[in-house]
Design a protein around this nucleic acid. Structure first.
Ligand code: SF4
Ligand code: SF4
Lengths: 133, 133
DNA sequence: CTATTAAAGAGTTATAATATCTATAATATC
DNA sequence: GATATTATAGATATTATAACTCTTTAATAG
């Protein structure tokens, strides 16, 4: 019951882009160095973010990744969902009782967490210019 | 990023005890049958619950498990913590920056969820006498 | 003492996360 | 067009954790 390291890397790179270069492209190597993770692995994570519309990519010389136009609206929840998928924390159901009481509790609790994660935008954190990496 | 099946089994057995026999002892075999899980495996989970004070056990003939005197106060969060341990959903930290912004967000979101899980008691669900198993 | 039941230990299997290697495709620059 | 650069994709290996089993031990009631 833990968020994956991939999610952690995704959050860090997003915050990194927001803090350092919201408009400029940056390749995967420098970020992989900062995060102390292999470029190929980080690349896979960034590709997932691209597909989810969290960042934009361009190949070729001078290419790299940059934030999309709407980047100030991107929330923690968006990033987490991009990596973890549309998670439901609880799904060990066996019998499919109608209107399951256990699942109701778990889902409503999960929603409380998601509300909070939806309100928190990386742009908001970036304003504080933290030493993110 | 999912709760373990063990947590699921724990929630179901607790609710089962609360619904069927709040005072009477019941062995692991009947419950394992209902849950379609092996008795030895369920036994390990129940032992964790015993150590966390969620249930009481007694060996020997006529023994088994029963809820403790304070069972009506037991929350979902209590049960989850008993199985998952004192979880922190997020811990992929690399640099230990002071007053980490990312971790602050994740922790506060997690607390929102835990508040909800702390308010939900199994006794409350048991009153509705659901077809739990 | 014997039957019954929980607890504990060691081990196995299954599944998912993590990471690497290699090959391919796209773009810019010359 | 040739070359260097960079992202993407596929296959695969490694590691970690969850899930489960088997066996032994301990405790209790009758
Ligand atoms: S109680 Fe809920 S989770 Fe459990 S078997 Fe019934 S529907 Fe599924
Ligand atoms: S930003 Fe937070 S989680 Fe990331 S390295 Fe710094 S302290 Fe750790």
């Amino acid at each position: 019951m833990k968020y994956s390291k991939a999610t952690n890397y995704a959050l860090h790179t997003m915050l990194y882009l927001a803090v350092t270069s919201p408009n400029q492209r940056v390749g995967v190597q420098p970020m992989a160095e900062k995060l102390k993770v292999s470029p190929t692995y980080l690349s896979k994570i960034l590709t997932q973010l691209v597909k989810a519309g969290m960042i934009e990519s361009s190949p070729g010389a001078g290419g790299g990744y940059k934030l999309p136009p709407h980047w100030e609206e991107i929330s923690f929840l968006d990033i987490i969902h991009a990596i973890e998928g549309p998670v439901s924390l609880f799904d060990g159901c066996l019998n499919d009782h109608p209107d399951c009481l256990i699942q109701n509790v778990m889902v409503s609790a999960e929603e409380k967490m998601e509300e909070e994660l939806k309100q928190k935008k990386i742009a908001e954190l970036a304003k504080k210019a933290p030493p993110v990496l």
